[in-house]
């Protein structure tokens, strides 16, 4: 479960908060779109939820842990239960795709045999197993995105967060990815996907977290799409 109560976030050196008095709850095993125009605070919220930063004020509980008061070791263990697909992929350029994808399992202390089996299973599902020995810098944007998705999915995280996970994928791959997210939700994973892809949102209507100017603007996909359109206009 994810629970935010009056959470604000003001990055150092920034005059005003990028998130203001945000209160929301996402029960365990549910799917949410994260919608809103550029600059609405979607990335900031994802940074909070991936524990890259802590709230400036307010209460944030993640998987039963109060993040605001948690120690470094508690946060470390919590991070291992979260999968994240960043918009910029964040793959380690010096490592192979396989080593990047295997990292979460290795950090959990899984055996090398299990790690290999799991990693190749998810890489094959995403059609990038043949790239396992390549370095990310030699891959296309779509291939890197699939490698980042594989790293997030491996080990079946309890919370999966994705920032524009389909923007470099073809439609068929995007649909398959959505189906996978739904399978994870069915298995009890909480999934939050930030996107600008209106077609995708229409195709899979679900509850939404709609942000506008750092505050919660609505809970319906139509709210997010409308906000996105007004931003583009």
């Amino acid at each position: 479960m994810i629970r935010l109560l009056n959470v604000s976030m003001m990055p150092p050196g920034v005059g005003q908060p990028v998130l203001r008095n945000l209160t929301l709850t996402v029960p365990q095993g549910e799917f949410r779109w994260l919608l809103g125009p550029s600059g609405a605070g979607k990335s900031s919220l994802l940074r909070l939820l991936t524990l890259e930063t802590r709230p400036s004020s307010g209460q944030m509980d993640l998987l039963g842990v109060s993040v605001s008061q948690a120690s470094r070791s508690t946060l470390r263990n919590l991070r291992r239960r979260i999968g994240f697909v960043p918009q910029d992929y964040r793959l380690i350029g010096e490592w192979t795709v396989f080593d990047n994808v295997a990292l979460p399992l290795r950090l959990r202390g899984a055996s090398e045999r299990d790690t290999r089996r799991e990693a190749f299973s998810v890489l094959e599902w995403l059609d990038v197993a043949h790239l396992a020995d390549k370095r990310p810098g030699t891959l296309s944007g779509g291939e890197q995105q699939r490698a980042a998705i594989a790293r997030a999915l491996i080990g079946r995280p309890e919370v999966l967060l994705a920032d524009e996970p389909t923007n470099a994928l073809e439609d068929a791959q995007a649909r398959r990815l959505l189906a996978t997210f739904q399978e994870l939700v069915d298995m009890g994973t909480t999934v939050i996907v930030a996107t600008h892809n209106e077609a995708l949102v229409r195709e899979a209507p679900a509850s939404s977290i709609v942000l506008q100017d750092g505050t919660l603007a609505g809970a319906d996909p139509q709210d997010g799409i409308a906000a996105h359109r007004s931003d583009r206009a």
Binding site: L78, R80, L91
Partner: peptide, 17 residues
């Protein structure tokens, strides 16, 4: 290697690791 260090940190690598 700041980016790489941050990636492994945010994936749950311990400081001592």
């Amino acid at each position: 290697q700041r980016k790489a260090v941050e990636i492994v940190h945010f994936l749950g690598a311990g400081d001592v690791t």
